[in-house]
């Protein structure tokens, strides 16, 4: 089966202050339809940069990028925009809702992007359906300042899902939320994959990472599988706790989730 996306030896070199900086030095990544992948890594390791390449915000410096087996490494801006609209959905740490629009208008905004035209009533129906999928159809008429953080993030997820994308790219979507709300948001994202949609989740939260089908770690510009022990070690490190081998086995089994927090 053709993978949804396939990155091979992708590099990204950014213009630094003095000399060019290599952010990604050869990333290999394959994601299939309906598969969920977590990407973890230190701050500044290039996770957002990787997502911006996958989501066609930016172009890689080298390597190859296939979408459904088709090479899209070098695309015109116009076709990249069309693919962003049709293939990808984006969720960010900050929700980026437009303050002057209601929830339903914020979702419908992804349908008013010059890629095809839907009459107002159809736009509204689809936006309401997307809001319903994330469980907040009743808040359709509310403007962002009247929504809680979790509700705002769910509006943003509805916006990402409204065009039925093949791959959702989420860059720390729970970063600005408390644990409980964060879990809810991950539930919502996870349920999208049950409908055959791929998901790449960038997160610092190992509890969330564990719930994805695979956990990958970005380090020194490359991606590698992160095993269960490493997951636990990272988690312990990230919360400043001791790196105890005994804990690792338990956490990997999902038993001691929240208890490691000192």
């Amino acid at each position: 089966m053709t993978p949804l996306i396939e990155l091979a030896g992708v590099t990204k070199v950014l213009k630094g202050q003095q000399q060019p900086r290599t952010i990604l030095s050869g990333v290999d990544l394959t994601v299939h339809s309906g598969e969920s992948v977590a990407v973890v890594g230190r701050s500044g390791s290039g996770k957002s940069t990787l997502l911006s390449l996958v989501g066609l915000f930016d172009r890689p410096t080298g390597g190859q990028y296939l979408l459904h087996g088709r090479d899209i490494t070098r695309l015109s801006e116009r076709r990249a925009a069309a693919l962003r609209s049709a293939e990808f959905g984006f969720v960010f740490q900050r929700f980026f809702l437009l303050k002057h629009l209601t929830a339903v208008q914020n979702v419908a905004m992804a349908l008013v992007n010059g890629q095809g035209w839907l009459p107002r009533r159809k736009r509204k129906a689809r936006a309401i359906a997307a809001l319903d999928r994330v469980g907040i159809a009743h808040l359709a008429k509310h403007k962002p300042p009247r929504l809680s953080g979790g509700e705002q993030q769910r509006v943003a997820i509805a916006r990402a899902l409204v065009r039925e994308p093949r791959l959702v790219l989420a860059d720390e979507p729970t970063g600005a939320l408390d644990t409980e709300t964060g879990n809810l948001v991950i539930d919502v994202l996870h349920s999208a994959t049950e409908r055959g949609c791929g998901l790449i989740l960038v997160t610092h939260d190992w509890d969330h990472a564990r719930r994805m089908g695979r956990v990958l770690r970005l380090q020194d510009g490359t991606l590698a599988d992160a095993g269960p022990e490493e997951v636990v070690r990272e988690r312990a490190a990230s919360v400043g706790g001791p790196d105890i081998g005994g804990l690792a086995a338990g956490a990997a089994g999902g038993m001691l989730g929240g208890m490691v927090v000192a």
Binding site: E77, R78, F90, M109, N113, G114, Q115, R163
Partner: peptide, 11 residues
């Protein structure tokens, strides 16, 4: 954001 959801540069 508008570009991210598929609005082209020209539009």
């Amino acid at each position: 954001l508008r570009r991210a959801v598929g609005t082209s540069r020209l539009l």
